[in-house]
C-alpha cells in the first residue's frame, strides 16, 4: 500500500532530522532507533522481511546494547539515577514514543492483512540470502572479514593509550 510507505517514510525523515538536531547523544540515539525501525517497516512492505529483521537486530539492537553499556558503566549510585531521570523525562520520550506507536500500528495492520496483494517484488527468504552469500559471493564475505580486520586494527592503534610504568615509590613522590 502506498499510503503505508509514505507514513513510514515520513516517520523515518522526521526521526532522522531529530537525530541530527538533538544536543544530547542519548536523545539522538532514541530517535535513531525509531529511524531504523521506520526503514525496517519500509523494507518489510517491499517484500524483504529478512532485511527488515536484520535492520532491527543489527542496527537498532546494537544501539540498545550501547544503551545498556552506558547504563552499566554509569550506574554508580543515587546521583546517577537522578541524572538518568532528567535525561529521560516525558518531553524527551514522548515524540519517539508516538512515532514508534505509528510504526507499530502500521506493522500490525500489515501483518494482519497478509498475504499482501500490493506486493510486486518476490519475497526473498533467508535461505536464498544465505545461499547466495556463501555460494557465488563467498569471496565478498571473506573480503568483508578483511575490512573488519582493518577497522579493528586501525581503531586499536588510534585508541591505544601509552602505558606509563612508574615505580611505586616514585609514583608516591609525585603525588
Amino acid at each position: 500500500m502506498n499510503v503505508f510507505f509514505y507514513i513510514a517514510a515520513a516517520v523515518a525523515i522526521i526521526s532522522t532530522l531529530m537525530v541530527i538536531t538533538r544536543k544530547h547523544p542519548v536523545h539522538a540515539l532514541l530517535y535513531l532507533i525509531v529511524s531504523f525501525m521506520a526503514v525496517a517497516i519500509i523494507f518489510f512492505q517491499l517484500g524483504a522481511p529478512f532485511v527488515a529483521a536484520l535492520e532491527i537486530v543489527l542496527y537498532a539492537g546494537a544501539i540498545v546494547v550501547l544503551f545498556i553499556f552506558v547504563v552499566m558503566m554509569l550506574n554508580l549510585g543515587r546521583e546517577t539515577s537522578l541524572q538518568e531521570k532528567t535525561w529521560l523525562n516525558l518531553a524527551t520520550w514522548l515524540l519517539p514514543g508516538v512515532l514508534g506507536a505509528i510504526l507499530l500500528i502500521e506493522l500490525i495492520y500489515l501483518i494482519s492483512t497478509q498475504p499482501n496483494e500490493t506486493l510486486t517484488i518476490a519475497e526473498i527468504e533467508p535461505k536464498a540470502v544465505a545461499l547466495s552469500l556463501f555460494g557465488p559471493y563467498v569471496i565478498g564475505v571473506e573480503l568483508s572479514a578483511m575490512l573488519l580486520m582493518a577497522g579493528v586494527i586501525g581503531a586499536a592503534h588510534i585508541g591505544r593509550r601509552t602505558i606509563k610504568h612508574y615505580h611505586r615509590f616514585l609514583q608516591e613522590e609525585t603525588k
Partner: peptide, 19 residues
C-alpha cells in the same frame, strides 16, 4: 559489489594510516 568492498577496505585502512 567487489568495487565497493575493495574501496571500503582501502578507505578503512587509510583512515588509521593517515592519523
Amino acid at each position: 559489489i567487489s568495487l565497493f568492498l575493495g574501496l571500503e577496505i582501502l578507505s578503512m585502512a587509510l583512515y588509521a594510516l593517515i592519523a
